[in-house]
Design a protein around this nucleic acid. Structure first.
Lengths: 362, 362
DNA sequence: GTAGATGAGGCAAGCGATTTTGTAATCTCC
DNA sequence: GGAGATTACAAAATCGCTTGCCTCATCTAC
């Protein structure tokens, strides 16, 4: 006899052998002649399960396995008021800085049963304001911010990578900029460079100011003079090497001699190298270039980049760990979590060439 | 008088002036002396709202604004059986190929009120199997697959970018490989190259076989002979330039002369160029190199890469659009959505150098 | 004057879980 | 043998929202 499904409103339990549709606690209960409550207890191994005999537990588990019962995540979240979901805010998905951090965070989150929703704001202020709200509407339990500066404090735990200290309640996982500056400058200094040019990050980038202060402080200690003509500031809000291209041209046009260039990051360093080469200069023979980050590709660029490595995946992982601790109320609030940088010496730096000819193409 | 909150089980409505806690339809209803149902109707502008006088509607809207009422996404999803969430599966987040596609998809999804959960499987078969299930447990409504080969068909709409045709029910948004192969080979041919080496993608990569067939077909048409010694296959399952480094060394060791190299993609092309240069060869003077994809960085590599551009963000957007159409049941199922490639000529190709000396460093 | 239409909104039944409370029946112990 | 504990569950209350069905009252039409 053919039995049509879903005929009556509430006919017989109908022992619906779930063809493929997900099965609910109630249908499972009808099949087992048990109440949904009991099944829930068993499957979650909740405290009250003590009073349920082993045999029944086995029956329940067997049936759950047989019908491949999977609890409705949304129903459960509604009841438990937990979503096991966090929000991740990044400037740009195609920026490997951000995605390497995300990769580290993701691994930890998934291990802990969390997933994340991503939104990339392309540094537009309205989106930086809107997206957190959209994500909060979806009941994320917290945020990971990557290279993102928030204007308003959110009502949830927030951990920022490459963050800043403006907003209350945000834990900052951030490179030890002081140490980073020392690594970069001492390296150049030891190679013999004295005329060093600097590229300063745009104010929209969260690491920029801090890094700048530290670089200048270390320069003073080394008794390096840093004339204003050897400093440029990045303007573009992009995450491509173009970032560093024009500023470097500008630097060259000023006609003040320098043998090394400290870039804001690897992306801009790549653009800078391009600009130098387009002007007929050799890197590193004419100008040594140092970057920050050690993004993927830094090692395979030509010349490969000497850089201050940030352990990005690890920073992501640390951020995720701290965020979950804060969500669970396990951690006392920390304002700052410093990460140790590492100097990676490759091809883009060498001692200054004493008799180099700065022959520029017209 | 101080009124303690949450004192009694169900005391007076208590007109709780939500200090910051989210407010529910019920509390809002108590405040307005209306039932939750009415408020829901008004706020959603549901059909039944016709019978509600404008004045009441205004009152409701004003109160909602005043208390900043935001519906519980989870409650609503549970009820409507829609989550406005899709899953995105990628091999690796730090792979810019994937993230550029994601960037395009994300923009479209958010516009349409969707968000997405990402999982990166690092090409591990067990994760490729596990993650879709995890995401389905979270009630995603469909999947976008990026460079990911599924073994089992999922019970949901799936759109694959750089996909394959093995699995039923998957829409493939994929480069017109035939046209791509023509663009690459004709370009080299017209420059005068006749001895061309080829790099074939690993079998785990979803574009690999198709691209290979097309390249060989076009080579035949151009009457190019492709000796086996001029073909290498990628082995590594990574998304860094190392992918192409060793294979290129192997190619060189075979000692068979070639003037151009067609790489599987830009990532491997970068590795290949590195290998060539490490052997003292010049690119493009000794060997011209062509990549595929035009990833970020291809333009800023040194030498900049001649490549077959895939409009990755657009492909992501197309994938997202088709997925939503399928979710909404608007689209008739399409097996294949071809995307047009574009030849981008940069520095890594030039005519073969007739009197070049292949002097290799030992 | 009364049937039927319309207006204004309440009621309640879900969605699919979790969790507290309740209740028979059996067991234990003195 | 009866109080109290334990066993084995069921019932019911939420979680916060949507939606079909009702109920009044008033208004219109004949």
């Amino acid at each position: 006899m053919v039995q049509l499904e879903g005929m009556g409103k509430r006919t017989k339990p109908s022992t619906n052998l779930s063809p493929d549709q997900p099965i609910s606690l109630r249908t499972l209960g009808e099949y087992l002649n048990l109440s949904p409550a009991t099944i829930s207890l068993v499957l979650n191994n909740a405290p009250g399960v003590r009073s349920i005999p082993q045999e029944t537990r086995d029956r329940v588990k067997a049936a759950a396995a047989k019908f491949d019962y999977r609890p409705s995540f949304y129903a459960r979240s509604l009841r438990k008021r937990q979503t096991f979901t966090v929000g991740v805010l990044v400037p740009e998905l195609s920026d490997t800085y951000a995605t390497q951090v995300m990769a580290g965070a993701e691994e930890y989150l998934i291990e802990e049963g969390y997933f994340y929703l991503t939104a990339s704001h392309r540094r537009k202020p309205d989106l930086i304001e809107e997206y957190p709200r959209l994500l909060m509407d979806r009941s994320v339990e917290g945020f990971i911010l990557i290279d993102t500066i928030l204007e308003k404090s959110l009502n949830l735990p927030v951990v920022a990578v490459a963050g800043h200290r403006k907003i209350e309640g945000v834990t900052n996982v951030v490179l030890d900029q002081r140490r980073a500056a020392e690594l970069a400058l001492r390296h150049l200094y030891q190679l013999g460079h004295r005329k060093i040019a600097f590229m300063r990050g745009g104010s929209h980038s969260s690491d920029a100011d801090d890094r700048w202060q530290c670089l200048m402080a270390v320069a003073r200690e080394l008794k390096l003079t840093v004339p204003e003509e050897l400093c440029v500031q990045l303007q573009l809000r992009v995450s491509t090497p173009e970032l560093g291209y024009e500023p470097t041209n500008e630097l060259l046009q000023r006609g003040v001699d320098f043998t090394a260039l400290v870039c804001y990051n690897d992306i801009s360093a790549i653009g800078a190298i391009r600009a130098l080469m387009d002007q007929g200069l050799s890197v590193p023979l004419d100008v040594s270039v140092v970057g920050f980050d050690d993004i993927q590709g830094a090692a395979f660029h030509n010349p490969s980049l000497t850089t201050i490595r940030q352990p990005l995946p690890q920073m992501g992982k640390v951020a995720a760990r701290i965020l979950l601790q804060r969500i669970r109320g396990q951690a006392t609030f920390q304002d700052l979590v410093p990460i140790h940088p590492e100097l990676v010496i490759r091809e883009s730096t060498c001692p200054p060439n004493p008799r180099r000819m700065r022959s520029r193409r017209m």
